[in-house]
Simulated scan of single mutants.
Amino acid sequence: LGFIRNPDIKLVLLDEINIALKLNYLTIEQVLAGLDEKPADSHVILTGRGAPAALIERADLVTEMTLVKHPLKEQGIKAQPGIEF
């Protein structure tokens, strides 16, 4: 939350936060309250599948991606530290 509140930080990326919500590591109320703390001139990017309806409603932009090609599945390439995890 400190990063979101900090007016000197203009972009915060919360990668896979929707998975944290799905696994109940966070509540939607906590996430929405954190977004309420965001300065008007900063941006917060939240990623991950299965965003809750309340988060979709609050968002300015929602994108749904569709897999077209993936080397891990199609070519048998294993996940790499620092890239996939």
Rank of each mutant, 00 (worst) to 15 (best):
Ala59His: 03
Glu57Val: 00
Leu13Gln: 08
Asn6Glu: 12
Leu1Lys: 03
Phe3Cys: 09
Leu46Asn: 02
Leu21Gly: 06
Val12Lys: 01
Leu46Phe: 06
Glu16Cys: 05
Lys78Ala: 09
Thr47His: 04
Glu57Arg: 01
Gly2Lys: 14
Asp41Tyr: 04
Met65Thr: 02
Asn18His: 05
Gln75Pro: 06
Phe3Lys: 15
Ile28Cys: 14
Gln80Trp: 09
Ala51Val: 03
Leu61Val: 09
Lys73Ile: 14
Ala40Glu: 12
His70Ser: 12
Thr63His: 03
Gly34Arg: 07
Val31Pro: 07
Gly82Thr: 08
Met65Ile: 13
Gly76Asn: 14
Thr27Arg: 01
Glu16Met: 07
Ile45Lys: 13
Pro39Thr: 08
Pro7Tyr: 06
Ile77Leu: 09
Gly34Ile: 01
Thr47Leu: 08
Glu29His: 06
Tyr25Ser: 09
Pro52Gln: 09
Gly50Ser: 08
Asp36Met: 06
Ile28Leu: 02
Arg49Ile: 04
His43Tyr: 11
Ile4Thr: 05
Val12Tyr: 05
Gly2Asn: 13
Phe3Arg: 12
Glu64Thr: 07
Ala79Lys: 15
Gly2Phe: 01
Met65Tyr: 05
Pro81Ser: 11
Lys78Phe: 01
Leu35Pro: 09
Asp8His: 13
Ala59Arg: 07
Arg49Leu: 06
Ile45Tyr: 10
Glu29Lys: 10
Ile9Glu: 04
